[in-house]
């Protein structure tokens, strides 16, 4: 006795449903979700479209946020959003950021991506308010002299220590105020670094 014709109907329905759902799943249907934040404790490559001091600052900040997020056990995206949305960053966030920036300087020094001080001098002098004679004298110095007198990592470490990160975050949407604060911190750090060098020589 043959099976009734209608038996083919549920079978066809089963094949259709399995086919449609199978094709959806095979093409990534179950995983069509927003990008998941990466683990901030795993080192990542950061790049910048900017050159010179801007590029260096951007790479430092990106690595610094990673380090801070790792310390705080949150993703760098969550930390960035918290810092952007909160009225006032917490002490723990400020400490983590400073520590993250220090770690970033050490990492960049270790992987050789930190430029020598001589590569940044021209750009730094352009935006500084030193008198023209002094700027000309410094520009006349050979790179080797500048690089032996100023270590980029030392200057950056001192600048990070001097920076008022709370005020810096408050000024993040004011480009001029931001640059001014960084310039003051870097100039102070250069002076401190030179003084320390002279003290060591003495």
């Amino acid at each position: 006795m043959s099976a009734p014709r209608w038996i083919a109907m549920p079978i066809a329905a089963l094949v259709l449903v399995c086919g449609v759902v199978g094709v959806q799943l095979a093409n990534g249907g179950g995983t069509y979700e927003p990008l998941r934040p990466a683990d901030p404790c795993v080192a990542r490559q950061v790049t910048s479209r900017a050159d010179g001091i801007d590029g260096l600052t951007e790479r430092l900040v990106l690595l610094g946020i990673d380090g801070a997020a790792c310390r705080l056990h949150v993703s760098r995206e969550a930390l960035t959003l918290e810092l952007a949305q909160a009225d006032e960053p917490t002490d723990a966030q400020i400490d983590a950021l400073r520590s993250g920036l220090h770690t970033a300087v050490r990492r960049m020094k270790a992987d050789g991506s930190l430029p020598p001080a001589s590569a940044l001098v021209d750009e730094a002098l352009e935006s500084s308010d030193l008198n023209d004679l002094l700027k000309t004298l410094i520009r006349a110095l050979p790179d080797s002299v500048i690089d032996s007198a100023l270590k980029t990592d030392d200057v950056l470490t001192r600048a990070i220590d001097d920076l008022d990160l709370r005020a810096l975050l408050a000024d993040v949407d004011d480009q001029q105020a931001l640059e001014k604060r960084v310039e003051v911190a870097v100039t102070g750090a250069v002076k401190d670094s030179l003084e320390a060098r002279v003290r060591d020589l003495a």
Partner: peptide, 14 residues
């Protein structure tokens, strides 16, 4: 968070 991630890594000037 996904938007933040893409903006942070975007190939744009700072």
């Amino acid at each position: 968070q996904a938007i933040t991630s893409l903006v942070l890594d975007a190939p744009l000037k700072p």
